[in-house]
Design a protein around this nucleic acid. Structure first.
Lengths: 222, 222
DNA sequence: GTATGATTAAAACAAGCGTTGGATTCTATA
DNA sequence: TATAGAATCCAACGCTTGTTTTAATCATAC
């Protein structure tokens, strides 16, 4: 019935979009695997694009809600004081990885998909995705500005971009990187801790002072 | 003539692949814009896939060569000592951004494309791309192991993944992030310095000790 | 000028693709 | 039970796509 049909489409779409990318995943592959008719996609979702948006939204909404919930708690605890950098970063990075545990196989698919989407340079995609993301990004930017008052807003913004990059690639590749061999094996919870530690250290690092002489020479030698 | 035809195809492909992604870029768009015939792609490159490989290789080869050159110099200077973490990271991160200056508009396109490709989860893509990349990755992994002898290889590997994530998203989004407004404007050289600083701090940060109690509680509450 | 191979062009193939319109079936309600 | 709306199905549309085949043109050497 209806709820089942939609759910099946969403689940299969999530996996195939994650594995192959949106443009390279024909709707017929999705519907064949979900055991539904091709016309169901347009009936229930309106278009292939809208299906992608629905796939993303059903997971991003609780993830972002959780992020904001955690951030609210941190800010409430800090009162007029300075929120802890690592706590803020944890509030941002932890929810997708923790929700993934909750969601089972779908969670893995979602992480891979979300990791890919972050690097999407196509304007249309970006507009859709960014819309769901930018409010949260701003909130965390502001919290980090409070946590790191010596950094200017530009530096915070860029460092958040770097942080999001780490998160995205870990989402996209983390599962397969971990399965290369024993040398790269690491429990998901440990991976998350490493990521948080790494990002917090980078975020809190001193601001570079100008362009070092070494780098200038390298540039000129090219 | 031949060299001109190939060059034009490569340049247009680079840009369109960067803007829209490989699967979403029809060959006819490339050839129309390059002013050549559709059959030229198969004649000169063999297939669409091979065109992508050629687009990537012509830029990655000098980038990776430069990386290894810089790393060799750092290791030679260090002799039996410990190479400097930031220097090693700079040797890895700087070449694509510096080559981009050299290459003009094509360099920007290439960065965007390379940034996207890093998040590609499709197995076929990854195999092709990874082949061109993994030797370099290994070399830098080893250099960082020397630079940070207290870290085990697994941690180094994961931190490199985080570092590559930051680099990739900066490549993919850096140009447009910088142009959002005055609040995010930053000279490309300063962005690179910030990225290096951020990554070096994260790379050299202490290893997290187990799973903190706070995170465990958060996980259970979900 | 001629022959040969390289390169480009034109036309087509075979398949795929998202969407659509109308028909049919299903479901809930009075 | 009848009805109306929801949901699914089927067939097709109109187009796009990477690749292929053959012909035409170009470039070079003799």
């Amino acid at each position: 019935m209806t709820a089942d049909t939609k759910e099946r489409i969403l689940n299969v779409a999530e996996r195939l979009f994650a594995d192959r990318g949106f443009p390279a995943t024909p709707l017929r592959d999705i519907t064949n695997e979900a055991g539904v008719n091709i016309a169901s996609v347009n009936y229930h979702f309106g278009s292939k694009e809208a299906l992608l948006a629905a796939v993303l939204e059903r997971r991003l909404r609780p993830v972002n809600a959780r992020r904001l919930e955690l951030l609210d708690a941190i800010e409430a605890a800090a009162g007029n004081g300075v929120p802890n950098v690592e706590d803020v970063i944890r509030a941002f990075l932890a929810p997708p990885f923790q929700k993934r545990q909750e969601w089972g196989a779908g969670g893995d698919n979602f992480l891979r998909l979300l990791g890919r989407i972050h690097s999407e340079t196509n304007e249309e995609f970006r507009a859709t995705f960014f819309q769901q993301f930018q409010g949260v990004f701003r909130r965390f930017e502001q919290a980090l500005q409070r946590a790191l008052p010596h950094l200017d807003a530009t530096d915070i913004g860029w460092r958040m971009l770097f942080l999001v990059g780490s998160m995205a690639l870990t989402m996209a590749w983390g599962e397969s990187f971990a399965s290369i061999g024993p040398a790269s094996h690491k429990d998901p919870e440990d991976v998350l801790e490493s990521l948080i530690q790494y990002a917090a250290a980078g975020m809190a690092s001193p601001v570079p002072i100008g362009v070092p002489v070494g780098a200038a020479q390298t540039g000129h030698a090219s």
